[in-house]
Amino acid sequence: MIQSRNSHEDPPTGRNAPRDLPVVGQMSRRTAVKGVAAAAGLGALGLATAPMIEKTAQLSVEEFLQQHFKELTDADKQTIFERLEQEAKEKYGATVEIGDFPALEGVRYGYAINLSLCNGNGKCMEACHKENNHDRATEQSYIRVFEMAAGSTNFGLGTTHFDHAVPQKDKYYLPMQCFQCDNPPCVSVCPVEATWQEKDGIVVVDYNWCIGCRYCMAACPYHARRFNWKPAEIPAEEVNPDQGYLSNRIRPVGVVEKCHFCLHRTRVGKLPACLEACPTGARIFGNLLDPNSTVRWVLANKRCFTIKEELGTKPMMFYFFD
């Protein structure tokens, strides 16, 4: 392979032959100039990185070294929850309580929406915004209501931007949020397992483990995921103090979040905030494993459909017209 150079068409010439190693004495002036240049370069690098160093200094060792949620003991969790409560106090001036809320046995959550009743009033979006401590500046919410053209399921003909009286003639209204898919593409793509499906079907995010690569946002076919582009702004008095670690606690900047079916409520027997706020009764939430639940009755007696069924994501949110 590396063989004689006899056959080479361009043998090296004397001009390109290697030079001797430099003599230190002759190099002194040049070396000094190089030294000054290197020092100036390092100084400039220090100045350039100053904002990053300043920000990193605010990061506590505990936060930096915190392990994945599934690896934490109950004692670890307690310490972390207290640290996060302290942070909420310092950053938002709010007294909050953060809990674990583990998934219940024998429960698989399902959500059904009666599109004949939904009139696009948007109370669900509003309730989600408040319940889940969303950023006030961007009016963030996990729910978006589409005003759809009657007779069409094409989202391209629908819009989320409408500020006229509802309901409009020739329109129907379709609220969208995370479907807690049984085959969630967002979970498979996460490189660090920062998002996973719990045994009750809810897909959660460990906001302290997410690296913010946003691959899950590219993978979700339903626009269900949000990214914290900026630190959330919430006035102290508006902060919802009843918080879950994997749900509605105030999210750190630079991580992805999503609807979690209000697990801090639903796992203690309450209903999701969006359902409670809905004035039309369009929302039906319950345990799919309970044969007597209303959601099971809906699935058995109404002709339900799911969105983009062909993608094989198996959504746990079912729509029907009554």
Partner: peptide, 25 residues
């Protein structure tokens, strides 16, 4: 591109949680 470059170590096999072989990343 990472929102949290400070958590870069989460993707180092052995140190963090490496979602291999599922995640193409």
């Amino acid at each position: 591109d990472l929102g949290r470059p400070d958590r870069f170590w989460h993707i180092i096999p052995g140190l963090g949680r490496f979602n291999w072989p599922m995640s193409m990343l």
